[in-house]
Every structure is written in C-alpha cells, then in structure tokens.
Amino acid sequence: MNDPVTTLDARFSDTDAEPTSWEATREVLENAQITWLATVRADGRPHVTPLVAVWLDGALHFTTGPEEQKAVNLVRNPHVVLTTGNNTWDEGLDVMVEGEARRVIDRDTLARLAAAWRTKWDGRWHFEQDDDVFRNDIGDPALVFAVEPDKVLAFGKGTFSHTRHVPRVTPTGR
C-alpha cells in the first residue's frame, strides 16, 4: 500500500489528537522486530503466533513451515491480522494490518525478500530462495506469504489516536 487515504476516528481519539501519518505507521511496520499473526482454525477458533515479518513493496511478508498451524489455517481461510507495536499503555504506536495472505512464488521477489530478511535483527534470519520457497540453513522449506493491506490501523498512545489507512481506489480498482 502506497499513498493510502488516512483518517482519524475521533470517537476513539483524544480531542487534540492528529492522525498518525502513513510514513510513521509504515516505519513501525518496517522496523518491528516481532509481529503477531492471527489466523483462523478450521473450527473457527483463532490462532495467534509471533513471527518476524518484512515490509516490502507495499505488503507485509511472513514465512511458515508447510505443516505449521498457520499454514494449515491459511489453506482454508486466507484472512489474517498482523499486529505490532509495544506493550506500554501510554507511549508508542501499535499497528494492525488486515488483509488476505497470498503465497509468494515469484523467484525474483523471493530473492529480494530473502535479502530483506537478512537485515532483520542482527542478520540471523537467513533464508535462501529455492524455486517457490525459502530454505533455512538446514534445508527446511518455508512458505512465504504477502499481505497487501485492506486496512491498516494505527493506535497512538500518550496522546491517544485511532488512525485508519486504506488503499486509495483508482479507476483500475486499486
């Protein structure tokens, strides 16, 4: 998502709050060390797990092993929420991304994403691109998913604000 429509929801914001800019929101997504992924199990129960995500080309990306619960859930229901921020009440910015997870299988995109993952933390997230998956250092496969946001919510703390970012609709539909 680039250049979204940004609005402040005054119902959930302090009277002197300003909307959180897209730039500030995107920065939180780009710099997050941990992101929490919520998927839906076959019986409708939620499944939430922490992971390392990468923001690239207007989407938030994550990986999972083919047999992990999140991968199993995504086969049935691609709708997800990814959240990040901090655990303090009165400072920082919490961000939620809503959308559908889709597999990334393009070799060039996977190569660029593998390079982006190596920049996370201290470089210990090392993947190699192999056909339509990543491989870790012992050769295990990792599926790569992208979430192009349908909606991004930014919750400012201190001066409390509730900002909504949605894709700008163009004559071509997005």
Score class of each variant (00 low, 15 high):
residue 157 K to M: 11
residue 155 F to D: 07
residue 140 D to F: 11
residue 174 R to G: 12
residue 27 E to W: 05
residue 102 R to P: 00
residue 136 N to V: 01
residue 104 V to Q: 00
residue 147 V to S: 01
residue 154 A to L: 07
residue 17 A to V: 07
residue 28 V to M: 09
residue 169 V to K: 12
residue 93 L to V: 13
residue 61 H to D: 04
residue 106 D to R: 01
residue 9 D to G: 03
residue 124 R to I: 03
residue 117 W to I: 04
residue 167 P to F: 05
residue 129 Q to W: 00
residue 151 K to R: 14
residue 132 D to G: 03
residue 3 D to C: 05
residue 93 L to F: 14
residue 104 V to E: 01
residue 168 R to S: 12
residue 82 L to I: 14
residue 98 E to C: 12
residue 46 P to H: 06
residue 18 E to C: 07
residue 28 V to D: 07
residue 131 D to L: 11
residue 159 T to N: 14
residue 27 E to K: 10
residue 24 A to D: 15
residue 118 R to F: 02
residue 91 E to S: 12
residue 117 W to S: 03
residue 124 R to P: 01
residue 124 R to F: 09
residue 144 V to W: 00
residue 161 S to W: 04
residue 85 G to I: 09
residue 116 A to E: 12
residue 150 D to W: 02
residue 76 R to H: 14
residue 1 M to I: 11
residue 39 T to G: 00
residue 72 V to N: 07
residue 47 H to N: 14
residue 61 H to S: 05
residue 84 T to V: 06
residue 78 P to W: 03
residue 15 T to C: 05
residue 69 Q to T: 15
residue 145 F to M: 08
residue 54 V to Q: 09
residue 23 E to G: 10
residue 90 D to R: 13
residue 95 V to P: 12
residue 99 G to N: 02
residue 60 L to H: 03
residue 30 E to P: 08
residue 1 M to R: 04
residue 83 T to C: 12
residue 138 I to N: 08
residue 115 A to M: 11
residue 90 D to Y: 11
residue 52 V to A: 10
residue 82 L to Q: 04
residue 113 L to A: 00
residue 174 R to A: 15
residue 77 N to P: 03
residue 31 N to M: 09
residue 87 N to K: 08
residue 37 L to Y: 04
residue 142 A to S: 14
residue 45 R to S: 14
residue 74 L to C: 09
residue 112 R to E: 10
residue 47 H to I: 01
residue 162 H to Y: 15
residue 166 V to C: 06
residue 65 G to W: 02
residue 14 D to C: 06
residue 94 D to P: 06
residue 54 V to F: 09
residue 33 Q to R: 15
residue 162 H to C: 11
residue 17 A to F: 04
residue 10 A to Q: 13
residue 110 L to V: 00
residue 11 R to Y: 05
residue 70 K to H: 10
residue 97 V to C: 08
residue 168 R to E: 09
residue 145 F to D: 01
residue 2 N to L: 13
